[in-house]
Design a protein around this nucleic acid. Structure first.
Length: 205
DNA sequence: GGTAGGATGGGCT
DNA sequence: GCCCATCCTACCC
């Protein structure tokens, strides 16, 4: 498990033992990408964490998806090429990070819902002074963007290069995946499109 | 352990 | 004007 090499030595080791997830990964289909993103690492500056919870938003045909009503100024990146960040502002306070997961012209993205902090934990604590434990630092979509300082300035950012990236360990330890309905939505609430690393203490619930 | 209610502002009808 | 892909606090077991 990654917890044994948390913090001080973690970032150099993570960068050494992993590689950036290529753009082709994001074009495998949104539900498949949501599953496959579990266990990958979100890296932004000195902050890094293991993705433990995701949700798939399928696009046209998925009434719960922002892209359901078509391309607007806010949602246009979801219709663009895969491997880019869709960051939106919600409830007047929070930012949420998604990764675009369909070919150019097709809508689909994955919401990153929770991350297990691995590096930059003191930085995360400073950004989230209310968090009472490492488990609470990034255990929700609004919490993790705060802990990682991800905002709408990252709207459209290419996560296969640059300061915000997703990386995969060359040797990934196996884990079980839990499938549940998505959280916080009223429509299409029956679809099992939320994916969680089973037993993770860092998930939102 | 649990949950009800409020904060807060942008997007869209 | 209403609706949120949320989180935190207060309060209650």
């Amino acid at each position: 498990m990654q917890t044994e090499w948390r913090d001080s030595i973690a970032l150099p080791r993570l960068l050494r033992e992993s590689r950036i997830v290529p753009r082709s990964f994001y074009a495998q289909g949104t539900a498949a990408a949501a599953r496959s993103l579990l266990g990958k690492f979100l890296v932004h500056g000195r902050a890094a964490g293991r993705i433990v919870e995701t949700e798939a938003y399928l696009g046209r045909g998925d009434p719960a998806a922002h892209a359901y009503r078509g391309s607007t100024e806010r949602t246009r990146v979801i219709f663009g090429p895969p491997g880019h960040a869709y960051v939106y502002f919600i409830y007047g306070m929070y930012e949420c990070l998604n990764l675009v997961t369909e070919p150019d012209g097709v809508a689909g993205c994955v919401l990153i819902r929770a991350v297990e902090p691995v590096a930059g934990i003191e930085l995360m604590r400073a950004r989230r002074p209310g968090a009472r434990s490492v488990e609470e630092l990034a255990s929700g979509p609004g919490k993790l963007t705060c802990a990682f300082d991800i905002t709408r300035r990252h709207y459209g950012a290419d996560v296969t290069r640059g300061e915000l990236t997703v990386r995969a360990l060359r040797h990934e330890a196996p884990f079980k995946i839990l499938e549940t309905p998505r959280i916080g939505i009223a429509v299409a609430a029956d679809l099992p499109l939320r994916f969680v690393i089973a037993g993770s203490r860092f998930a939102s619930r």
